[in-house]
Design a protein around this nucleic acid. Structure first.
Length: 479
RNA sequence: CGGCGUGUGGCUCAGCUUGGUAGAGCGCUACGUUCGGGACGUAGAGGUCGCAGGUUCAAAUCCUGUCACGCCGACCA
């Protein structure tokens, strides 16, 4: 009992204090550390390995659609940033400025990129002359800086890692198709790899990206019922092209503006993984994103043959394609179990003298803690099955949680009451007027998360003002 | 940017009210016993008390200033 008590003391229960639980999990899973600069985190090996897996998966999917990777500078001259009016107004409050080079003050100060639309536009203006130069479908992996007031590991840091895709097309149709295509890449990635179900939809004008004609988004629901914008894809129309003079000569020898898109996903997704799948014992990683899928834990490892057997199992499983490690530290088995659970390693294999005698091992699932005794002869087959089942179950569990925390509201009183009393998404009709969005935010702090592509007509009138409704909206309190 | 709060061995913190030789637990090192849900014994190492001034015979403690970080709000991926 005393030992069990110690276990629960390590990580604050998510029911007691979700924010503290999150911080505890990040710390106990050894994902990040704080640094001497507020809001700038060390991403430790366990955290960075997750990001590397996200990168590999996304990058492969991008390239299948024809994306090419490039790298642009981290500095943007002030004059360049100011060329598109809405864009600069949107980002100005949170940019960091470089004012000196060595001891000398710069003629023109440089902004540390908060996003790179302006740099890509400047580049494209030089690069694109003819319709033969189109489309440009570029992406870069980099970090960006936004001087946030309030910071949290992964969810809101002043510097964060991401990818930003920037494309230029001959026609509006092509740009629109690319915008939607990339949103779907993100949505599939979230569901298939991260086991996070998403709502695909369009942002309202109030919530859309600064300078965009339309912003599409995938929204996911965290375990505490707050929404997280998980990936966005923007259609810029020819707005940036006009501001930056990006023109090409068409086949008919007329001068045309290009149509552009941009789309991004960030290290914030690591925060989403934590908040969707984690439990009171720590992190739970979906098998397809886990840097280590299997931890082999020898029991009574000082006894003859135990460690050798553990290494043999590791070797066999590595050959079979699993990501596997052996915890051969001199900690007690109980300690190793807790470590494996806090770090979210999807399964552990317990192997001790009794198992070796019986030619078996014990597989333990991280998400359900189910213990499965399996013969060493078909360990690899069973492991494949367990990991596949776990990946599937995690998505379905998250989907069930989201659906159970999605409500419909038909009048304003019901809407406000639901938002305030039931954490989750509230679906309600909206007239399209920003005044209603503002009123909702004023009354509840909730925002319009998106207008889903899959529309349903819950009623004919706006839940807020009663005027004729234009769209069904997912509302919620967001990170 | 507002409201809290915190800075003392690697970590978590006590000590500060009432000034007087810097403490505990965990971790770390060595050796031994343990090992199926955070084991134990013995012996060790380790700190200019965030920083700068000031008061005082004497400051972790009192005063002034300053910096940093955390949490909660408003803004945002």
């Amino acid at each position: 009992m005393a030992k069990e008590k110690k276990l629960v003391e390590e990580i604050t229960s998510m029911d007691v204090d979700f924010a503290q639980w999150y911080t505890d999990v990040v710390k106990k899973a050894e994902l990040t550390d704080y640094t001497s600069v507020k809001g700038c985190m060390v991403i430790k090996p366990a955290g960075y390995a997750i990001w590397e897996n996200i990168q590999h998966e996304l990058d492969r999917r991008f390239k299948e659609t024809g994306v090419e990777n490039v790298y642009l500078p981290m500095f943007i001259p002030e004059g360049l940033l100011q060329k598109e009016k809405d864009h600069v107004e949107g980002f100005a409050p949170e940019v960091a400025w470089v004012t000196h080079g060595g001891m000398e003050q710069l003629q023109e100060r440089l902004c540390v990129r908060p996003t790179s639309e302006t740099l890509f536009c400047d580049f494209y203006a030089k690069e694109i002359q003819s319709y033969r130069d189109l489309p440009k479908v570029y992406n870069q992996w980099c970090s960006v800086v936004r001087w946030e007031k309030t910071t949290r590991p992964f969810l809101r840091s002043r510097e964060f890692l991401w990818q930003e895709g920037h494309t230029a097309h001959a026609t509006a149709e092509e740009a629109e198709a690319r915008t939607q295509q990339m949103l779907n890449v993100y949505a599939d990635f979230c569901e298939e790899v991260l086991a996070i179900p998403v709502i695909r939809g369009r942002k309202t004008d109030k919530e859309k990206f600064a300078g965009a004609e339309a912003t599409y988004t995938i929204e996911s629901l965290m375990h505490d019922g707050k929404a997280l914008q998980s990936g966005t894809s923007h259609n810029f129309g020819d707005g940036f092209a006009r501001a930056f003079g990006i023109q090409y000569t068409a086949k008919d020898n007329t001068l045309q503006y290009v149509h552009q898109t941009s789309w991004g996903m960030t290290t914030r997704m690591i925060g989403a993984i934590i908040m969707v799948h984690g439990d009171n014992s720590g992190l739970v990683l979906p098998p397809r994103i886990a840097p280590v899928q299997v931890m082999v834990i020898p029991i009574a490892q000082h006894k003859e043959g135990v460690l050798d057997k553990a290494y043999a199992i590791k070797s066999d499983l590595l050959k079979a394609g699993f990501k596997v490690k052996v915890d051969d530290s001199d900690k007690s088995p109980g300690w190793k179990f807790s470590e494996q659970e806090m770090k979210g390693i999807p399964v552990r294999i317990e192997i001790g003298p009794k198992d070796i005698e019986a030619n078996q091992a014990v597989i333990v699932r991280r998400d359900t803690r189910e213990k499965i005794v399996v013969s060493l002869d078909n360990l690899s087959e069973k492991l494949t099955e367990v990991l596949d089942t776990m990946q599937h179950d995690m998505l379905e569990r998250a989907r069930a949680h989201r659906d159970a925390h999605t409500y419909d509201a038909l009048n304003y009183e019901e809407f406000v009451k639901t938002i305030n009393e039931k954490p989750g998404f509230v679906r309600a009709m909206w007239c399209g007027d920003q005044a209603c969005e503002d009123k909702v935010k004023e009354d509840t702090t909730a925002t319009a998360r998106c207008m889903p592509f899959k529309q349903e007509k819950l009623s004919d009138v706006c839940v807020c003002c009663g005027k004729p409704a234009k769209a069904m909206v997912y509302w919620g309190k967001a990170y």
